[in-house]
Each structure stands twice: as structure tokens, then as C-alpha cells.
């Protein structure tokens, strides 16, 4: 049954998820178009031709507004997918559609697992899409500010010659200065992205489920619960990290790897706290669905 639930949940969500990805591709393309404006070429100092010909133009204005639109949409898309997944969870679990969902011959635990897995996956996909879009835009910016006929490869070669270091040297410097293995840091980023997607979904689902514990104004109480959960998570996170910072300041001397060690500990604490919150909120949703289900 788990496989069937996964299949139907994916089929029900993929259209909206893909639409969000298309929007990301679209705004990234707009970003590329925005950097086609001659204004960006004037950023290259040694090219007097472009500097002399630079002035206010409609094209430049459009370029700036297009980039502003890009930024707004870059924030709107992740919020949009979260809102969509939250509304969908609420609709299929706690409104009329819940009458079908909760009379399916499947365990409530399976329903929760499927909703959580598919929704977290979509949050993760959209987040990766946002990262890729930002990376692409940075590349567009670099290429836009390069003189004509000057390629990105040439840019990196010149960068290495001027600063005396390539990407490998930058990585080495990062590792020696912070005392953190770059590979370990990369793995940490991947894990925290996955866990972040899981935590954001569980915060959403947990708050919606908490709203169901009230007899009236359930949507309003879900929103209030969401805000309260966010505040509690913020306060607890700050308190724990405050203790860690205090303990480092008190107990460590000027060790060359102090900053790296501190960042490592802080990162692990963030991961653990997120995991604890996510599991706790999953348990709340599970409990509401198994013991306290009261469809209106």
C-alpha cells in the first residue's frame, strides 16, 4: 500500500511542482536577458568604449526591474511550494477530501510518511532549483561584465595569474583557515538541506495538525500554532547556541582551528536541533491523526 500511496501522492503533486520549476527556469532566462543590457558591460573598468557610451536608457531600466522581478520570484517560488503543500495537506487530511483519505485501508502512519516524503522531496527539489538559478545568474553576471570575445575559461586563468591561486588553492585555504575539511563541509550542506526540507514540512504539517485540536477556528489556530512553533524553535535554537558560544569563549585560547571547531559544533547543533524539532512535530501530526482525528 505504501508504494500505491507514494504513486498517487506524486501524481497529485507533480504538476504544481513542475510548474514551479518552469517558473524558476523562466525567471533565470529573464535574468540572463537582463544581463544582455549594455549597462553591465560598463562594469569592466578597462573597457573605455562601454564606459563612454553608458547612459540612462529604457533598456537599462528594464534590466534593473527584470532583476528585481527575478529576486521577488526567487523568494516567492519556495514560499509558493510550501503554501501549496500546506494547503494540500490540510485539504486532503482535514476537509471533505479527508473523508476519502482517512477511510482508505492504510495505516495512518503510512499516510503521514507518504505526505512527508513527497512534500519534503518537492521542497528539496525547489530549493536545489533556486540554488542552480542563483549560480547560473552569477555566471551570467560574470560573462556579461567580460569584454567581448573574452571567455569564462580565460577569466579563471587570469584570476589564477593575478591572485596566484586557483579553485584548488581556495579550497585549501578554506580548510586550513577554518580547520574544516571541505568535503565534510559539503556533506554537512547536503545533509542540512535535506533536513531543512524535512523540518520545514514538519513544522507546517505539525502546525496544521495542532489547529485540528481546537473545536472552532481551526485554520486560524493552525496559523497561530505555526507562528508559535517558529518562535519556540528560534528561542531554543538561540539559547542552545548561546551556551555553546559562551563555552567556547570561556574554555578556548587562541587556537588556530578555534573558528573551524566552533563552526563545526554550531553546525552539528543546528542539525540535531532541526532533527529533534522535525521528529517532535511529526509525532504531533501522527498523534492527531491516530488518536484525535475529528473531521468536521
Amino acid at each position: 500500500m505504501l508504494g500505491k500511496l507514494l504513486k498517487h501522492e506524486w501524481k497529485s503533486t507533480y504538476k504544481t511542482g513542475c510548474l514551479m520549476l518552469v517558473v524558476l527556469v523562466g525567471i533565470t532566462f529573464l535574468g540572463w536577458l537582463a544581463f544582455r543590457s549594455p549597462m553591465w558591460q560598463t562594469l569592466y573598468d578597462d573597457n573605455a568604449y562601454y564606459r563612454e557610451n553608458f547612459g540612462f536608457s529604457v533598456l537599462n531600466l528594464v534590466s534593473v526591474f527584470t532583476l528585481l522581478f527575478y529576486l521577488v520570484m526567487l523568494v516567492a517560488v519556495p514560499i509558493g511550494i510550501l503554501a501549496y503543500l500546506g494547503v494540500r495537506f490540510y485539504k486532503t487530511m482535514y476537509t471533505d477530501e479527508g473523508y476519502l483519505t482517512h477511510t482508505l485501508p492504510v495505516k495512518e502512519g503510512q499516510l503521514m510518511i507518504v505526505k512527508t516524503l513527497i512534500s519534503s522531496l518537492w521542497v528539496l527539489i525547489i530549493f536545489l532549483g533556486v540554488c542552480l538559478s542563483v549560480f547560473a545568474l552569477m555566471m551570467f553576471l560574470i560573462s556579461a561584465t567580460l569584454p567581448p570575445g573574452y571567455t569564462l575559461d580565460e577569466f579563471w586563468e587570469e584570476f589564477e595569474q593575478v591572485y596566484g591561486m586557483g579553485m584548488r588553492d581556495v579550497v585549501n585555504m578554506f580548510e586550513s583557515e577554518l580547520g574544516i575539511s571541505f568535503r565534510a563541509y559539503f556533506i554537512y550542506i547536503i545533509i542540512s538541506m535535506i533536513l531543512g526540507a524535512f523540518t520545514s514540512i514538519m513544522t507546517l504539517f505539525g502546525a496544521i495538525s495542532m489547529g485540528q485540536l481546537f473545536t472552532k477556528h481551526r485554520v486560524l489556530m493552525a496559523i497561530v500554532s505555526y507562528i508559535l512553533v517558529k518562535i519556540v524553535m528560534g528561542i531554543l535554537g538561540s539559547v542552545v547556541k548561546g551556551f555553546v558560544t559562551y563555552s567556547y569563549v570561556s574554555n578556548h585560547n587562541d587556537s588556530p582551528t578555534l573558528m573551524g571547531s566552533y563552526l563545526n559544533t554550531n553546525s552539528i547543533i543546528t542539525l540535531v536541533l532541526n532533527l529533534i524539532f522535525a521528529v517532535l512535530l511529526y509525532w504531533v501530526s501522527y498523534l492527531v491523526n491516530t488518536k484525535k482525528l475529528n473531521l468536521e
Binding site: 473523508y99 482517512h102 477511510t103 482525528l293 473531521l295
Partner: peptide, 9 residues
Amino acid sequence: IKMMNGLLT
């Protein structure tokens, strides 16, 4: 009816 179907506890 809802209790018989597990929609209400």
C-alpha cells in the same frame, strides 16, 4: 456514522 468509519474518535 463518522465514528464507525474512524473519522471521529
